[in-house]
Structure formats: C-alpha cells, structure tokens
Amino acid sequence: MNNYKLRITNYGFLALAFVLVATGLFYQTALAQEPTPTDDEVNAIAKQLYCPVCENTPLDVCPTEACRQWRELIRQQLAEGRTEEEIKQYFVNNYGARVLSEPPRTGFNWLVYVVPPVLLLIGAAVLFNAFRAWTKPKVAASASGSGREAEPSSVDDEYIKRMEEELKKRK
C-alpha cells in the first residue's frame, strides 16, 4: 500500500488527494468487512435455532436451500454487529417461537417446565408414603396379630378342599 502511495505522489496534488480519499474509503469499508463472521461463528448461533420450515431440525445442520439462506442471514447480521440475542430475537419476531430450541418461559409455556418436576415430586411422595404404609403394618400386624396369622390356614383348607374336588372330577 505504501509503495503504491509513493508512486502516485508524482501525479499532482489533485490526483494524490483523490487517491488518498479513495484509499481512505477503501480502508473504511475494509474495516467494516474485515471480521467476516466465520462458519463456526454462524453455526454457534444457528445451532440454537430450529429450521422454521422443517420439523425438528436444528438450523446449523439443515441441508435445505432455505436454511442455507437463513445461515447467510445470520452471517450478515453478525457482520452488522448484532449480538447473538438480537439475532435470535429477530428470528423469533419473524418466524415465531418455534425457531427456539426451547419455548420462552412465558405464559402457557411455563407448563412445559413446571409439569415434569411436579409430577416427579408427586411420584416421589407417593412412593415415600407407600414405603411408610408398607413398613408400618408390620408393627400393627404383630401387635393385633392373630387374625392375619389365622387367615392362611383357612385359605389353606379351602384350597386343599378344592384341590381334592378337582382331583375327583378328573377321575
């Protein structure tokens, strides 16, 4: 660049001024373009978004042409200096909440997050109660006792009786 400038100083002041302005402009645009977002930077955001048209396909791996263009859109917005959050918001505004890999924690969507832990807690509570119910009667049964003990033998008799009836039938 320097050599270039030196050579053209020979052409008069005007030309020099023109070139200086031109290089200045060139420099400015170069500065704006220089941090062209890499594929990795684009994918880092695309990964968190879902293809607005295909079902359940993250945007970073979706092979469709539409998704390729959306990835370019992310690149463009990154180049314009937008943050990750802004870009995600842009997609939500344009294509709805379904582009997010998780629903935003608002309104009805809270149910998504609340129901499983609540059910799990209920399950744990039921299980805990069942444990208590299972372990307690042991004491109660041995204390109040004989009714429980007697039961099997009466059942036993009945069973043997039936068994014999069945055997008779077979003969």
């Binding site: 998780e102 629903p103 149910l111 129901v115």
Partner: peptide, 17 residues
C-alpha cells in the same frame, strides 16, 4: 406440549434437546 400449545394457544413451539 408443542401439540397442546398449538391446540390451545395457536402458537407452535419447539421442545428440543
């Protein structure tokens, strides 16, 4: 929940990884 959301609120959501 995505089905419920679409049915009751009319908005599609994604429940992902």
């Amino acid at each position: 929940s995505p089905l419920a959301s679409e049915l009751f609120t009319g908005t599609k959501i994604t429940v992902g990884p």
